[in-house]
């Protein structure tokens, strides 16, 4: 049984504008994929800890030392839009 997904909500969370047709298509495909992926639920995992990372090491820290920064012109050269020394954006919708 394919998984039913509120694809419009997922797309909003992922900040991707999708059309209704795309939503229908992605929804169906994701349903199929998730049906397959849901197989993971068949495996008994009581008492099994999750693995987030394959490398069992800890503590990769850096000393509190200042390192060279990027050249502002090189950074802003990639900006889709700039205004003086800033990245320029359309207005925000929401309060921070």
């Amino acid at each position: 049984m394919p998984v039913d997904i509120d694809i419009a909500k997922v797309a909003r969370l992922a900040r991707i504008a999708i059309t209704e047709e795309e939503a229908a298509e992605y929804g169906a495909q994701l349903g199929d994929i998730l049906e397959h992926a849901a197989r993971v639920q068949a495996l008994p995992t009581d008492g099994v800890p999750p693995t987030a990372h394959p490398l069992p090491i800890a503590n990769a820290l850096r000393d509190d030392v200042i390192e060279p920064t990027l050249d502002r012109e090189e950074v802003l050269a990639q900006a889709p839009e700039r205004d003086g020394d800033f990245f320029k954006l359309p207005p925000f919708l929401e309060d921070s």
């Binding site: 205004d83 003086g84 990245f87 954006l89 359309p90 207005p91 309060d95």
Partner: peptide, 12 residues
């Protein structure tokens, strides 16, 4: 203010 603003400038 955010409301009514024409755009935003970002400093990182």
């Amino acid at each position: 203010r955010i409301t009514g603003s024409e755009g935003s400038l970002v400093d990182f």
